[in-house]
């Protein structure tokens, strides 16, 4: 059997499987998935479907500032959801902003998965002192709220880095600080499942063959502990997006020249009571829907992958 037919085989297996069935029979999950996919795809192809590049100051005109949504009195089709104080088209700004929010979310979750899964695997498989050291570090980390860790790291890294590189490194800093604040969850889960898998006979069989611990950990154990990681990863994607928005809202996130959803909300809140409600409401709704749908997806995944609930 070649790789292509193997892949077809795998697809057939998936669509025949219980997970696909459980997906199909859960309308909430289907709606959430469609919504999440639409939002993520829209963010990725934002430049193709928006009239304006809101990050390019040259394209902004202060004369357009505070235009209301299209159904309002001063609304124009050029700015379907209105503009902000700089004359930025909100529709474009939201899509561009969600690009940053989602990008930061994915990157930081990926980073925390790499760190958390690796450390969790090592702690669970090696055990003993190594386990104790890794898990105590994780305990310390988990006992601080994620936001606090992110704020702290953000502050420290900004202080250490030279001023000129701050703008360019701002994204890296925020990804790193969010990633650092959620890795213990992955480490804990993976450590637990690793300890269960480690005692199973297929791992012992691999040891009898003579495989090195590293090969056993990454080739045998890892694929069998990734199920829960997928679930936590999805739920944490929502959390990371929120965290990024919060940091940006507090002004320690991405630079205001390239506003993310959080930045937009921060800018907008100043005008909430002066009548320009749309500046804060639309990015807020987008963020809420994004987080909600990703969360629902994560909830469903957790149930679908848990054989006890099926």
């Amino acid at each position: 059997m070649g790789p292509v037919s193997r892949m077809q085989d795998n697809f057939a297996r998936f669509f025949d499987g219980d997970i696909w069935h459980s997906f199909r029979t859960s309308p909430v999950t289907v709606v959430a998935t469609v919504l999440a996919v639409v939002m993520i795809v829209a963010a990725i192809i934002a430049p193709l479907i928006t009239p304006q590049d809101p990050f390019d100051p040259a394209s902004l005109d202060l004369m357009d500032a505070f235009t209301g949504p299209v159904w309002g009195a001063d609304g124009v089709w050029r700015f379907p959801l209105g503009t902000d104080d700089q004359g930025r088209d909100l529709y474009s700004a939201i899509l561009y902003g969600s690009r940053i929010s989602i990008g930061v979310g994915f990157a930081s979750v990926l980073l925390s998965i790499v760190i958390g899964v690796t450390l969790g695997l090592i702690a669970g498989y090696v055990g003993g002192t190594t386990d104790a050291v890794i898990m105590r570090i994780a305990d310390v980390q988990i006992s601080f709220p994620a936001l606090l860790v992110a704020l702290l790291l953000n502050g420290v890294l900004r202080a250490l880095l030279p001023g000129s590189s701050q703008e360019t490194l701002a994204l890296v800093v925020i990804i790193f600080s969010i990633g650092m604040s959620i890795w213990p969850q992955f480490a804990r889960t993976v450590r637990g499942s690793t300890m269960v898998e480690k005692s199973k006979e297929y791992v012992q069989a691999a040891r009898v063959i003579g495989l090195s611990s590293r090969a056993i950990m990454f080739r045998h154990v890892l694929p069998n502990v990734m199920g829960p990681v997928l679930v936590i990863g999805t739920i944490n994607l929502a959390i990371a997006v929120l965290l990024e928005a919060t940091l940006s809202f507090l002004g320690v996130g991405v630079p205001p020249t390239e506003p993310s959803l959080g930045t937009l909300i921060r800018i907008g809140q100043d005008f909430l009571f002066s009548g320009e409600w749309w500046i804060v409401i639309f990015p807020g709704i987008f963020l809420a829907l994004l987080v909600l749908s990703v969360n629902l997806l994560g909830d469903w995944l957790r149930d679908a992958l848990n054989p006890k609930l099926r």
Binding site: K200, E201, Y202, Q204, A205, A206, V208, I209, G210, H220, P223, N224
Partner: peptide, 22 residues
């Protein structure tokens, strides 16, 4: 003596746990 290790193998009790399900 890695050679000696190769010359011995083991068969386990639980046929459901002794093969990697993935």
């Amino acid at each position: 003596n890695r050679g000696a290790q190769r010359r011995m193998q083991m068969i386990f009790q639980d046929p459901y746990a002794s093969l990697n399900p993935r």
